[in-house]
């Protein structure tokens, strides 16, 4: 008792410490059986040491996502002294649960659209992508595309996929960022894992940057209007 009394009290978290925590939600969206949940599990392997929640999957006995999968990571970003907590979630791809997807998408800061490489799934890819664009039109949420299952024998060529999906021919977005990443989420090869890692970090950087710009803008507006002293 006396020992604990003699120790200096632990300082309460300052408002600055709270400001330096950024919470982000990244979502995986796409048609059924495209590889959203597989990528989700692969991310848990890649970023295992940053995982801060056990994560959950609400799925059917066939391992098809019924509601969603969700897990949290905490990434310390040294240069900016910022801790980023990322909630990674997936939606269901099954047509019979489509009505639930809109709710999972709410408040997402960034979306990975997981497309299926099979030629036979191009219609489903298109329909799902258009649905996503419709839902995110107002918020202008950043989207990257993961073209999965590149090992399929009838895999669509990247140029054909870009054409079919009406994406830029040079596979570059307005900010010069890569739009489509070709992956094999089921593969355990380091090269494949690295592509998923690159895709995830690329989107995360875009979202963090966007968030910081928005926060700074809001802060400046408050300062100008006399809200902050």
């Amino acid at each position: 008792m006396s020992n604990s009394m003699s120790q200096p009290p632990t300082p309460a978290p300052t408002s600055e410490a709270l400001v330096r925590l950024l919470q982000i939600k990244l979502l995986f969206w796409g048609p059924g059986e495209a590889g959203k949940t597989t990528t989700y599990y692969r991310l848990q392997e890649i970023f295992q040491r940053f995982q801060v929640s056990e994560g959950f999957s609400i799925a059917t006995t066939d391992e098809r996502t019924l509601w969603n999968d969700s897990v949290h990571f905490r990434f310390p970003m040294i240069p900016s002294k910022l801790d980023v907590v990322v909630n990674v979630a997936t939606t269901t791809g099954q047509e019979r649960f489509l009505s639930t997807r809109e709710y999972i998408l709410q408040n997402a800061d960034g979306v990975v659209f997981v497309g299926d490489s099979s030629w036979g799934k191009i219609e489903e890819n298109l329909r799902s992508f258009e649905e996503l664009l419709h839902f995110t039109k107002r918020s202008a949420t950043p989207i990257v595309i993961q073209l999965n299952k590149r090992d399929l024998p009838d895999a669509i060529a990247l140029t054909d996929f870009l054409n079919e999906m009406d994406l830029p021919d040079n596979n570059q977005g307005t900010a010069g960022t890569q739009v489509v990443y070709e992956t094999i989420a089921s593969s355990l090869l380091p090269k494949e894992k690295h592509t998923i890692q690159r895709l995830f970090i690329g989107l995360l950087e875009t979202v963090v940057r966007r968030n910081m710009v928005n926060t700074r803008r809001k802060f400046q507006t408050k300062q100008n209007t006399g809200g902050v002293k």
Binding site: F56, W67, S99
Partner: peptide, 18 residues
């Protein structure tokens, strides 16, 4: 919609199991 009711019920069951 009986289908949505079924989906919500099963999802609730999934959350409960988790």
């Amino acid at each position: 919609n009986y289908w949505d009711v079924g989906a919500i019920g099963a999802a609730l069951y999934g959350v409960g199991k988790q």
